[in-house]
Design a binder for these strands. Sequence first.
DNA 1: TTGAGGGATGTAAACGCTGACATTGAGGTG
DNA 2: CACCTCAATGTCAGCGTTTACATCCCTCAA
Lengths: 343, 343
Amino acid sequence: MPPNRPRTIKDVAAWAQVSTATVSRVINHAGNVRPHTADRVANALEALGYVPNAWARAMATDGSDLVGLIVPDILNPFFAAIYSGLNETAKSRGLAVWMVDSGDNSEQERQMLHMLGGYRARGIAITPAHPAANLRAIERIGVPICLVDRRLAKNLWDMVLIDNVTGSRQVAQIFVAAGHQRIAIIAGPQNSTPGLERLSGFRDALEKEGLSMPPEYIKIGDFRLNSGYALGQELLALDRPPTAIFSCNNLMTMGLLQAIHAHPAHSLGKTVAVVGFDDIPISTLTDPPLTVVSRPMREMGVQAARLIMARMESPAKPLETVVLGPQLIIRGSEKNPGLLRWI
Amino acid sequence: MPPNRPRTIKDVAAWAQVSTATVSRVINHAGNVRPHTADRVANALEALGYVPNAWARAMATDGSDLVGLIVPDILNPFFAAIYSGLNETAKSRGLAVWMVDSGDNSEQERQMLHMLGGYRARGIAITPAHPAANLRAIERIGVPICLVDRRLAKNLWDMVLIDNVTGSRQVAQIFVAAGHQRIAIIAGPQNSTPGLERLSGFRDALEKEGLSMPPEYIKIGDFRLNSGYALGQELLALDRPPTAIFSCNNLMTMGLLQAIHAHPAHSLGKTVAVVGFDDIPISTLTDPPLTVVSRPMREMGVQAARLIMARMESPAKPLETVVLGPQLIIRGSEKNPGLLRWI
DNA sequence: TTGAGGGATGTAAACGCTGACATTGAGGTG
DNA sequence: CACCTCAATGTCAGCGTTTACATCCCTCAA
């Protein structure tokens, strides 16, 4: 078994027969160490397998190199992509990113906020679970916070958002252009920004085109696969099922496709058109391939990192909101080949 | 703006007019504090929004509550699932899990190992990038290490593995049972356990059935989507293409499906059968649905947590290896409806 | 009345590191 | 040869906690 106690700077100093200060200087490449001495210390470091204690260093210098990322669902590749952008940018400035999962649940979010606060993270990027209360509490420990993808009632933090309204409007427009009349939506929770904005943006755009959705065509899901499946089934089981469905996030789209697939009388592109919010890996594999509104996910992470680092430098600078545009990727599943059958 | 300096136990002590020791006792529910005093402290904690500094606490108690998880690709849902199991188990014992990405790259793995070592993680679960050298270095800081999903040359650590050989053999057997003669494989890198074992297990099983794969039917990929796509194209473009393909991980299977989809003369289940290692979200959506070998991913995380915590308690206990069985899920894509056409 | 016992609280050292300051000594200048 | 300079190195306080130990004081029994 290896030595149980991690080596300390004192062990190294003793080995090299110098003071701890000299070791510290060598480690941190602070000047004024004779090459001969530096060599001896380097040998000691190597021989003992010394790894500096990051906490102790942070305590002494009053600053960790930790940035937190709190996401509602760590299994959702969408958030993993945000992590990826955030991490890359942070890393280039010597910061490390710790991603944790709130389960989209207020209590767990509070725990995670406290945990990261306790570790004295230098900043926190968060896609908040619904209520705002948690952030007010953690805000007092003085950590820069950046909201990602979701607004909160009070406009108190930097934000990186997606222009959901524009994205949804584009979907409405191509449905209309394809000749659809019976258009439905599987929306997200109405207490979150994306859920709200995608529904209202879609509905408003349809109304501008002179169309309206009857209540039974408006389904409110929870952004998870199962709800896409269940609500998809409900829509398909209607006496007059829609010919086009807008699914408001990746997982629900997967569920919806599954529901269509499982239904004896329906098939994608034949009886029902689908457009999804968020691109998904299988979008090119379905038949017809899936038309989607794609979000620049990595870029959201990059921007969040930028905002956090900027605020670390000037805590008092005015709040900043970055709104990124979604991209409509037309692949075919929005069309309505069965148009004539249904008129 | 909030107070810039996080509150310390001293601030609280001053506010409540007690000593820091008393505050500490209240926080940690160590007894012997008069209710009246405890109340006063509790008020101070609340009023100041105090969040204990986790580093300082770890330094004083010589023990963090941190466990590291190093994965080759944080975007791959497979590893996210491991995280999920690991995190849940660790959390129930008051440990926090920090997942980081090695990019399946030795140098970055080394950095991550050092980072977690620097933060004095109590244990590290890792799916190692290929060479073993890194671990020897970090081993010296005395952290329990548990390998997940991949062996290394030297058997020096606890491990959680999948029985790849059995999984692959089952695939070979159902291909043979379905009457396939021309069977190909898209395998993983041959310097990693899963890549190696899945190929050899598959080949050996076929040979026991009296079949052999010609070299052009054996493609070595890198476990990423693009290589599944490219190698799939190569297989389909052969003069005598295989009627059955075993794809050795989730991402390559996605790529393979894409290649089949894109090929004018081929289609899944009609001209070519596919079985994948690892279940994927779309497996029930393809036509026919995809037959796969599924791994108990969360359970791998749970076991890794168990091994790490056990070794934290008794560092000298004998090495332990847990081998979990994969599960064959037969959905239809292994069949060969085109059998007659090809004979 | 007094001293033992023990609950409540305070004091201070220790954890591993950094950095301001102090000390040492070699080399250069007059 | 005395003095100054400055590079090289050492000393020590402090970062925010916990915890062993010391102290205080109240209660109770003899």
